[in-house]
Simulated scan of single mutants.
Amino acid sequence: MIRPLWHLALGYCALVWGATFYIVKEAVTVVDPVAMVAYRFLLAALLLLPVVLLPFARASLRDSRTLRCGAILGAFLGTSYLTQTVGLKYTSAANSGFITGLFVIFVPLFLLIFLRRPLSATQWVACGVAVLGLWLLTGGGLAFNLGDGLTVLTAMAYAGQVLAADRFARTDANPLVLAFHQFWIIGVGSLALSLLLARPLDVRTEGALWAILLLTLLPTLSAFVIQLFAQRHVPAMTATMIFLLEPVFAALFAWTAGGERFSAIPAAGGALIVVAMAWTEWTKPREPEPLTDETPTAEAAPTRVTDP
């Protein structure tokens, strides 16, 4: 597949992730948020299971190192989805989309804190612009609520997932198997948390049942599988730039299909966050091009998954 088609594939991921914020917002009024995460990821794992049992994926499925990589990615992604889904009970879908997008700011911050990679002056300025945008988005801090706080944790967890995925990128681990491990680990973990906390597991309306099915098929199963394949061919900087469309789509769908009230000041705050995210990405050092189908075999040999 040529590069522009992989770009379109990642654009599809950003679209469905952003477009379904308001659907989750409505669904968690009748389904417990933790149960919602459990159902969509368990069902996604169940649908993917017949594929990963086929001969071409079976060896990777038995690889303990691939399982450990999937577990690490699942832990970060599961934390991200749990905090985001619970947070949607208390904040708007538009706010949730924009605040989640702050993961692009947390990535360089975590690189500085944990890997001692210093930030450039432009990255520090971008962080300040993002904080200003968050302040405007949440009503100058006066309207900052539990949902907004949980969604900041979402952005932090997703940044951790991005850094972990960067470590495991372009290895010989089968992307379908990595996705499968992420799905069942998140699903089982969320279900266990529901049982431990004695959370309700019932789905009280037919509409919520259809919402779970939609969330399983589009933003969970299709988008995460596509992402793992596409990022083998697209540089991380380019992929992240495409993902900046997610909060934009989240706000647009929340203000239109979701029926949320449009307000100029929060919208300006969201725009500043997008500007900061774009600025952070554009000022990164240029990354080497990923391997392509035309790369000579000796250079294109995949790297073996290392013990995390």
Results as ranks from 00 to 15, higher is better:
residue 215 L to W: 10
residue 234 V to D: 02
residue 250 A to H: 00
residue 38 A to G: 05
residue 189 G to K: 00
residue 228 L to Q: 15
residue 256 T to L: 10
residue 137 L to Q: 09
residue 57 A to T: 12
residue 292 T to S: 15
residue 190 S to D: 09
residue 293 D to I: 09
residue 220 T to N: 10
residue 182 Q to V: 04
residue 216 T to H: 11
residue 60 S to Y: 05
residue 64 S to M: 11
residue 108 P to G: 06
residue 194 S to Q: 09
residue 229 F to N: 07
residue 66 T to C: 12
residue 258 G to Y: 08
residue 146 L to I: 07
residue 181 H to A: 01
residue 111 L to M: 15
residue 272 L to I: 02
residue 205 T to L: 04
residue 171 T to N: 14
residue 55 P to F: 09
residue 225 V to G: 04
residue 259 G to K: 03
residue 285 P to M: 08
residue 205 T to D: 08
residue 124 W to C: 02
residue 278 A to Y: 11
residue 209 L to T: 10
residue 168 F to A: 01
residue 23 I to M: 12
residue 90 Y to G: 06
residue 135 W to A: 07
residue 301 A to L: 12
residue 272 L to Y: 11
residue 270 G to R: 06
residue 263 S to W: 07
residue 33 P to N: 08
residue 1 M to Y: 14
residue 99 I to N: 04
residue 198 A to L: 05
residue 16 V to R: 04
residue 63 D to G: 02
residue 163 L to Y: 14
residue 228 L to H: 05
residue 107 V to F: 10
residue 233 H to T: 01
residue 179 A to C: 13
residue 288 P to M: 11
residue 14 A to P: 01
residue 163 L to Q: 08
residue 3 R to V: 14
residue 282 W to Q: 06
residue 219 P to T: 09
residue 224 F to D: 10
residue 289 E to H: 10
residue 71 A to R: 06
residue 293 D to A: 13
residue 136 L to S: 01
residue 254 A to D: 14
residue 151 T to N: 06
residue 124 W to L: 05
residue 92 S to M: 03
residue 206 E to V: 13
residue 77 L to M: 14
residue 7 H to T: 01
residue 183 F to N: 01
residue 242 I to C: 08
residue 108 P to S: 06
residue 203 V to M: 12
residue 164 A to C: 13
residue 286 R to I: 15
residue 124 W to A: 01
residue 193 L to R: 05
residue 126 A to Q: 03
residue 71 A to L: 15
residue 173 A to V: 04
residue 73 L to T: 04
residue 224 F to R: 00
residue 204 R to Y: 10
residue 94 A to R: 00
residue 76 F to N: 05
residue 130 A to S: 13
residue 185 I to K: 01
residue 65 R to P: 07
residue 229 F to K: 10
residue 202 D to I: 15
residue 222 S to I: 13
residue 171 T to F: 12
residue 52 V to I: 04
residue 46 L to G: 07
residue 209 L to P: 00
residue 129 V to N: 01
residue 227 Q to N: 07
residue 132 L to V: 10
residue 113 I to P: 13
